[in-house]
Design a protein around this nucleic acid. Structure first.
Lengths: 248, 248
DNA sequence: CGCTGAGTTGAAGTATTTCAAAAGCTGTGG
DNA sequence: CCACAGCTTTTGAAATACTTCAACTCAGCG
């Protein structure tokens, strides 16, 4: 039961940036690799726990994943979301254990590829390394922006930034930015992403809505009414952010 | 005027993990590359500002650098410290601008290598890519641990963690952990690292000292008296952390 | 000696959390 | 169709962790 809104390629299609056969019947080696390892995923499934042994990387085909860590008292921090196109390497420095918990937030599909196979594949294909660098840089930039606001920003800034970031990541069509989007998250999860309690997330978003900056419908269908005002709150210009956190 | 305590290789030596000529007079290609681009650095120098055009990566030979971002109101968040061995790629997703400000915290030396040269060099040398993956994983794990505490941890936990992290990164001799170390930081900078005001950093560290967990001498010479208690406050076991954030 | 910058301490202010209760929505079974 | 359970959201009130402001100390340095 895949939800359409989370598709960025059709099922089985190639993520942007990787060479594709263009659906003409024969597969590229990368398509073959992904195809061999792809598996469906139900919302709520845990793929991996922090500290688990793991030697695979994940490529998200459809749906959203969360990468999180938690404290012994049960508090959770979501480190990042992964959506279609994203390739996740959960490995810690030792290369054999995962430093994050990986969970499916929605139904979807993901390819779990043994790291060794992935390395072998990219050996023969320098372009892939170029694509990976771009993805790595985007991920790092995104996390750094959020870390800045986690450390020094107000609740309003953190939430405004998070919404802007997600809005940008969800933009399908370049040069045709949309201000309407859906995030498959509860306020609790959004709070875990920006380091706030769900109560304060609620209050803050409600205030933004009251001020005419955005509207919210049935659990997180968001429409940004005043992109400029939101960017102002987030402390960044939309186009700058887009350039920094979007690969390709 | 290099301060001895910041050397991890002797000047001009190769960082751990990279093949070295062993000082027998002829250079490996990597040594040659680093040597060609190395330059000395004085404490306080800014190498790069957030948003600057940049197509180089940096390899820290000696000294400490900080990677930071700041809000328009002037508040600073230090994203990470870089020390000898570390290779920094400050690029944002567009590949041509830097997403962080890079500053020298101490005197030292760095090699600034054009990204294209670095890619060419590693094309011929798959091992380097392996080393880089290990470094990337260590960096990501470190930042994720800190992000967790930035979002969900108390001041005490953030500082305990930061001290433990720095202590581990400064350990020279594997299997011979030391609890004595120096961090070339003001309390203000430590606060910028963990998202706290300098005043609160002071109070919190003083409390730890009062409780017999550590001692501090002349601006940040730290001795951990109770490693177990500090790890408890930080919410992590020292050996686990070491394995996750130390490459090689 | 008087300056400067960092660290220290107290008191007041503020942002955010926690606790608690109620309201809204969704699916399930009678 | 209703009743009910379970979950998320919403709102208020009290508690708390951290910041800000301001004054003072201390060490290094011309």
């Amino acid at each position: 039961m895949f939800s359409d809104r989370h598709f960025i390629t059709k099922p089985g299609g190639m993520p942007l940036g990787f060479p594709s056969s263009g659906d003409r019947g024969h597969e590229t080696p990368v398509e073959a690799m992904f195809g061999r390892h792809v598996r469906p995923l139900r919302a709520g499934t845990t793929l991996l726990l922090e500290g688990d042994r793991n030697d695979t990387i994940f490529c998200v085909m459809t749906g959203w994943l969360s990468l999180s860590k938690s404290l012994c008292d049960g508090q959770v921090q979501i480190i990042d979301f992964a959506m279609p196109i994203d390739i996740i390497d959960p490995a810690a420095a030792d290369g054999t254990t995962s430093c994050v918990t990986v969970e499916a937030l929605t139904d979807g599909a993901v390819a779990a590829i043994p790291h060794a196979s992935w390395v072998r594949l990219t050996e023969d294909w320098p372009e892939a390394r170029h694509v990976m660098r771009s993805m790595d840089a985007a991920r790092a930039a995104r996390r750094a922006e959020r870390m800045l606001r986690l450390g020094k920003g107000t609740a309003e800034m953190r939430i405004a930034y998070a919404l802007l970031e997600l809005c940008i990541r969800l933009d399908r069509v370049p040069n045709m930015p949309s201000n309407d989007f859906h995030v498959p998250l509860t306020q609790q999860q959004l709070g875990d992403y920006v380091g706030l309690s769900s109560v304060h997330v609620c209050r803050t978003m409600r205030r933004m809505a009251r001020n005419g900056i955005l509207t919210m419908k049935n659990h997180m269908d968001i429409r940004i009414l005043e992109p400029e005002a939101l960017a102002e709150l987030a402390g960044i210009m939309r186009e700058d952010l887009r350039r920094c956190i979007l690969p390709f």
